[in-house]
């Protein structure tokens, strides 16, 4: 197990290097001068400009700049913005919002998706099953952009006018409640995929020999489904959920825009236009790390959940 983890970490290095290099190159190619952007409309003293350019290695060639960034990164230093604020300070608050949002979405996804999938699998071939399948198709097809505004109008505004103020529609002032609606919107398509996955996986497991044995032993249906089938059917679900954490965090930008959540999406926007390279690269680097780590944890969980799998 230990050797496997080390091997996976080593394999992750080229991915991390490649992704940061790619993002760094894109940000490097952004039009406009960051030092000029710092001053806004005013003209800066040329001397100050020189000092700033020197301080942030802006006069060096691209690869040298990247090298400076990378060595900083390995010391855990995400660098400073051109205004002198540490990037980690900026990112911390923004990532908190996005993580809250993604976590809310993930919980909804797990509960609703697994629940609907379980129900559909047990009613396989009946009307409820087809209805759930149809609903997943709609949920997959309707873009976040549309579900976001629809739910904002229906649940946030119309319901409030009817006297039920359950779901705040903008900002994060209401604590966890603020994330309910955006969380559901963000989870939308994932809920549908998870429902389908649970349904297929459970139906497959229910056909296994050990399930027939369990039924033949005379065990109650609850126990057969809950203990014997569900446990084994859950394995692919865990993989999906784990891999989805990164997708949800990276895909949150449209949801954040609809619901005015001050997360990484909004920060990325601001930073792109201020040409704050370190912030942009930092945000994407953290997302890449989340993706790599989540996938690794999922692979390791596999071995825990399914004793047949052994990593050497």
């Amino acid at each position: 197990m230990g050797r496997y983890i080390i091997r996976r970490l080593v394999q992750a290095i080229p991915v991390l290097l490649g992704a940061t290099l790619l993002i760094y190159a894109i940000v490097f190619a952004l039009p406009g001068d960051p030092v000029a952007a710092l001053a806004g409309e005013k003209r800066l003293d040329p001397h100050i400009v020189d000092v700033l350019r020197e301080q942030y290695h802006l006069n060096d060639p691209f690869l040298v700049q990247y090298w400076h960034y990378l060595t900083g990164l390995f010391r855990g230093d995400f660098g400073d913005t051109f205004a002198g604020v540490p990037v980690t300070d900026i990112m911390a608050g923004k990532f908190q919002v996005t993580i809250n949002l993604a976590a809310t979405a993930l919980v909804m996804e797990a509960v609703i998706g697994a629940g609907l999938g379980l129900y559909a699998a047990l009613r396989h071939g009946k009307a409820q099953d087809s209805m759930i399948l149809g609903a997943t198709l709609v949920l997959i097809s309707v873009p976040t952009l549309v579900t976001g505004f629809m739910l904002q109008l229906l649940l946030g505004v119309k319901l409030k006018q009817a006297g039920i103020d359950l779901f705040p529609v903008a900002g994060v002032a209401e604590g966890l409640r603020s994330y309910l609606l955006p969380g559901f919107v963000l989870a939308g398509a994932s809920i549908a995929y998870l429902t389908r996955l649970t349904r297929t996986s459970l139906m497959e497991t229910l056909r296994a020999d050990y399930i027939r044995t369990a039924v033949a032993k005379g065990l109650p249906r609850r126990r057969v489904v809950g203990r014997h089938a569900l446990r084994n059917a859950l394995i692919p679900l865990i993989t999906f959920l784990g891999a989805d954490l990164g997708t949800l965090m990276g895909g949150a930008v449209i949801t954040e825009a609809i619901f005015n959540l001050p997360g990484i999406g909004q920060q990325l926007f601001t930073s792109v236009y201020l040409r704050e390279q370190p912030v942009v690269v930092g945000i994407v680097t953290v997302l890449v790390l989340v993706y790599i780590l989540a996938n690794m944890v999922v692979d390791l969980l596999y071995a825990v959940l399914d004793p047949r799998i052994r990593y050497e």
Binding site: V15, I26, A29, P31, G265, V272, V288
Partner: peptide, 23 residues
């Protein structure tokens, strides 16, 4: 290996950055 790199980058955010390069 190259595809692994692309998989690790969130596509909407990546597209947003690329589009910001072309004004």
């Amino acid at each position: 290996r190259v595809t692994e790199i692309f998989f690790a980058i969130p596509s909407i955010l990546g597209a947003l950055l690329i589009l910001a390069v072309f004004r």
